[in-house]
Each structure stands twice: as structure tokens, then as C-alpha cells.
Design a protein around this nucleic acid. Structure first.
Length: 431
RNA sequence: UCCCCGGUAGCUCAACAGGUAGAGCGGUGGGCUGUUAACCCAUAGGCUGCUGGUUCGAGUCCAGCCCGGGGAGCCA
């Protein structure tokens, strides 16, 4: 008997095949039973009619509980009445393992209930769609950089000190030394781009901030490209192409999943080049006219400000050239205005917040050293980083994209915790 | 750390102005030959988060505590 994946069912119309999976739902009208089966690759409705199958097969319906693992054999048929377009006329059913008291029912559940059973929640249809979407976003990210000649350079996860010095880090032990879980691979990418020109890293990132919002995770995945001889304009351009590439791929390959997620696809289709670009100063003027008339120039934007700015546009918006004092030490001063630095943030539309943060890096040894000293940074720990400005320093730029924030926006889900298989939340890491 | 909201059946929620604790789903038993979170009938299931207070009477009002949620800060 031919065994198939449900995802390939359209190739087997008229054939008798076996499907191995789990019972997702069942319904009955007495002499006809409907079994909704999922196997991880898709969903199909299987029909068990009393007049066509042996009594012991027909009666198995009563024993079948939701999420029991089963093997079903029958003929595949196209049928508009099926919620999935295809059906199987069942000839035989084998119960592999009978599930008792599966906790997730067909009605809605709250997160307090679902999070501790994330290992089971992943089987639900919305989570199925989300993880498949996430997979495609990751694949698109790798293909984008690969197709443009970038080299993947993995950054270390155990690091001796903070990269940016602002966020709280997870501390651990490295033999007799203190070590921290990486909060960014950027500094290492700066070293790597001097060896490979165009590089990127894609790995987990850890931030021990006590953030308790629907946009924060303690552990998330970040993609950080870094390019030698690139300036701020170059990476703004790159970030646009990058986001467009991801959106196009998702629209091409994940229509079904977006439908399950009830995503308004027109919002994604309207994302076209060029994105809106505004300077920090222009954004502050905008805020002054839109409900934040006392916002002081020089302060970093908070969430309400970012939301206000992003809601003014139907596409992502890039805000560039923030005040120097509000930004990280490594950002290059704007030669046209020493109060601002050559940096950029990309804000997703619909209030999903910052998905990209990037900058041109300070490439002047003396200026960087002076800045680090002014901020009381442990300069000795950064000797290797300063070396990059000592031996053939060049202008270089890069940015970081938050994978889960991007998936959250594309999928249109309310909370970021659903965009990663096993979310690490504030004081919560089970399962 | 601060602010706001919540905690009632296994789950999701209701209970007006303080007056015997309710529904849907899930469970159990029965029915139905095209169901779409199927539906119909019957049935079991409760220390209303905890402690104390006000009251003839508290799920409801008050105080304290515990737990959960999401918002600020910080960021992707």
C-alpha cells in the first residue's frame, strides 16, 4: 500500500493510499462519519460510510478520541464539500495509539492554559501555520543573503562582555571567569566583514530585560548583516530589498497559512519600494503636530511615539539620524551634524514596532576611543574591536533584524510568543 | 521597579442595584446518511484564588496577601 503525506494528496486523486497521522477532529451524522486527519504536512477529511465499510471499522469511530494516532487507508477524491478540497473514502482504520483526555479542546483557550502545554499547542492549526510561515521567512533570509554573495559567519554565544552595554545580560560561568550570553553578534561581524566583505550571522540572542510586553522575548533570533565599504544609504537600501524579498516569498509560498491566520494579505501586498524615510528631526516635528507637542528633541522614542509614526504609513518606515546621546557608542557621527549619528530604525506598519536597527559604524580610531572613554567603557576588553580601526579601517555598516518581530508582523499575530516554537518569557521557561 | 486589568465547573465565560451559582464547549448515555468549532435530547460536574472584615445575608462591598495577564522603562 502506498503511504503518502497529506501535503501531496493532489497527486493521488483516484488512488488508494495510506495516511499516517493524528485525529484532529471528528463529526458524525449517524451512518456517515467525518474524520479530520492531520499528519503535519496538511489536513484532510476522511469519510467513513456504514454501507461501504465493515462494521468493526465503522464502529471504531466511537473509540477514536481527538489526537489519537491512526493509520487510514482509502481512495482519494476531490470534493468541494471538504474544508480542505480533498477527501478520502476510508476502507480501513488502524489505531496506533489511543489518546485519553487530550487537554486542548475545540473551543478557544487562554494563554495561561496553553503556554504550559506548548508542546501540545504546537499541534493546533494556527500554530502549524505560524511555524510553517516562520520556516519560510528563515529560508528566504538565507536565500537573500546567499544570492547576494554574503558569507555566513557564526558569532559566539558565550561572550566576555557586553556588546552595547545598555541591556541586561544573562550571566553564566566560563570556568573561573564570568561570561554572558550574546545579545548581538555585531561586533564580531565587524571583524568578519574586514575579512569577507559581506557577511551575516543568524543566531539566538539573549536579553535579560524584565520586559513583559507582547513584543518581547528573553531569547530570540536575530539576523545581522555587516558590509565593508558600505555607508548608511547602502544599508537602508539593502534593508528595503531584504524585507521585500521576504514578503514576496511568503506571498508566493504561504497563502494557505496566511488564510488560516486570517491575515489581511492586501496589507502585505502594498509593501513596495521605496519605503518612507524620515530623519529623527522630521519625526520629532511630526510628533509635535500629532499629539506629542512637548516631546523634546534629543530623547529616544518610546513605544507610543514609534507607534504613532508607523501608523502614519501603510508601508514600513525608516527613521534615520538619531541624536548621538540616545544611541550606542559604535555609531558614526554624521559629518553634516555632530549632534546625530548615521543610524536607522525600520518600524513595521500596523504598530508592530521596530524590526530593524542599524548604523554606519565609527571607523576612526581616535573618535571611537574617545567615545568609549567618555562612556566609561572597559577599553582594554575592546582592544580587538579597536584593532579593526587600526589596520586598514574602512567605512562599514550593518543592521540587525529581529526574526520573531518580523514573523509577528507578517503573520499579523497579537503576541510575539506564538512566533517561536518554545518561547522564553519573563520568569517562564517551561516547557 | 512602577501603573492598569483579572482570578467563578476540565476549558472559555455569564451572574442587574448584596438575596438559593448559570451557559457553551469538553465528559458520559442516546439520536441523526454530507458534517464544516456539525447539530438535537438527557446527564454528571463548584471550598466563586487565600485570610479576615461589614451585613439578617457576600461571587458581588472593604482590607491584606497570593497567582495570572499587558503596559511603561529597555529593546529586535
Amino acid at each position: 500500500m502506498m503511504e503518502i503525506d497529506i501535503g501531496e494528496v493532489s497527486k493521488y486523486v483516484g488512488k488508494i493510499v495510506t495516511i499516517k497521522g493524528w485525529l484532529y477532529n471528528k463529526r458524525s451524522s449517524g451512518k456517515i462519519h467525518f474524520l479530520i486527519i492531520r499528519d503535519g504536512t496538511g489536513y484532510i477529511q476522511a469519510i467513513v460510510e456504514k454501507k461501504y465499510v465493515r462494521a468493526e471499522i465503522f464502529d471504531l469511530y466511537d473509540e477514536l478520541t481527538l489526537e489519537s494516532s491512526i493509520e487510514v487507508t482509502g481512495k482519494i477524491r476531490e470534493d468541494k464539500r471538504s474544508p480542505f478540497g480533498y477527501e478520502m473514502d476510508v476502507e480501513s482504520i488502524k489505531i496506533v495509539h489511543k489518546t485519553l483526555d487530550y487537554p486542548i479542546s475545540k473551543k478557544e483557550h487562554g494563554v495561561g492554559f496553553l503556554l504550559p502545554i506548548r508542546h501540545l499547542w504546537l499541534r493546533s492549526k494556527k500554530q502549524w501555520a505560524l511555524m510553517r510561515l516562520r520556516h519560510t521567512v528563515i529560508k528566504a533570509i538565507r536565500d537573500f543573503f546567499d544570492s547576494r554573495g554574503f558569507i555566513l559567519i557564526d558569532a559566539p554565544i558565550l561572550t566576555p562582555s557586553a556588546c552595547e552595554g545598555t541591556t541586561t545580560l544573562f550571566e553564566t560561568e566560563y570556568f573561573d571567569e564570568k561570561a554572558y550570553l550574546s545579545q548581538s553578534g555585531q561586533l564580531y561581524m565587524e571583524a568578519a566583514c574586514m575579512a569577507f566583505k559581506k557577511v551575516y550571522c543568524f543566531g539566538p540572542t539573549f536579553r535579560a530585560e524584565k520586559s513583559k510586553t507582547r513584543r518581547h522575548l528573553m531569547e530570540f533570533w536575530m539576523i545581522e548583516p555587516e558590509i565593508a565599504f558600505a555607508n548608511l544609504d547602502d544599508i537602508m537600501e539593502l534593508s528595503e530589498d531584504f524585507i521585500l524579498y521576504i514578503i514576496e516569498r511568503v506571498l508566493e509560498q504561504r497563502r494557505e497559512e496566511l488564510k488560516i491566520l486570517e491575515r489581511d494579505i492586501s496589507r502585505l501586498e502594498s509593501v513596495k519600494k521605496p519605503f518612507h524615510r524620515v530623519s529623527y528631526t522630521e519625526a520629532v516635528n511630526f510628533l509635535h503636530k500629532n499629539g506629542f507637542k512637548d516631546f523634546p528633541w534629543g530623547e529616544d522614542f518610546g513605544t507610543p511615539h514609534e507607534t504613532k509614526i508607523s501608523e502614519a504609513y501603510e508601508k514600513p518606515v525608516i527613521v534615520h539620524r538619531y541624536p548621538k546621546e540616545a544611541k550606542a557608542f559604535y555609531m558614526k557621527e554624521d559629518p553634516d551634524n555632530p549632534d546625530v549619528v548615521l543610524c536607522m530604525d525600520m518600524l513595521a506598519p500596523e504598530g508592530y514596532g521596530e524590526i530593524i536597527g542599524g548604523s554606519q559604524r565609527e571607523d576612526d580610531y581616535d573618535k571611537l576611543l574617545k567615545r568609549m572613554k567618555k562612556l566609561n567603557m572597559p577599553v582594554d576588553d575592546y582592544k580587538w574591536y579597536l584593532d579593526l580601526r587600526k589596520y586598514g579601517s574602512v567605512p562599514h555598516s550593518g543592521f540587525g533584524l529581529g526574526l520573531e518581530r518580523t514573523v509577528q508582523w507578517i503573520a499579523g499575530v497579537h503576541h510575539i510568543r506564538e512566533t517561536i516554537p518554545f518561547p522564553r518569557l519573563l520568569e517562564k521557561m517551561y516547557p
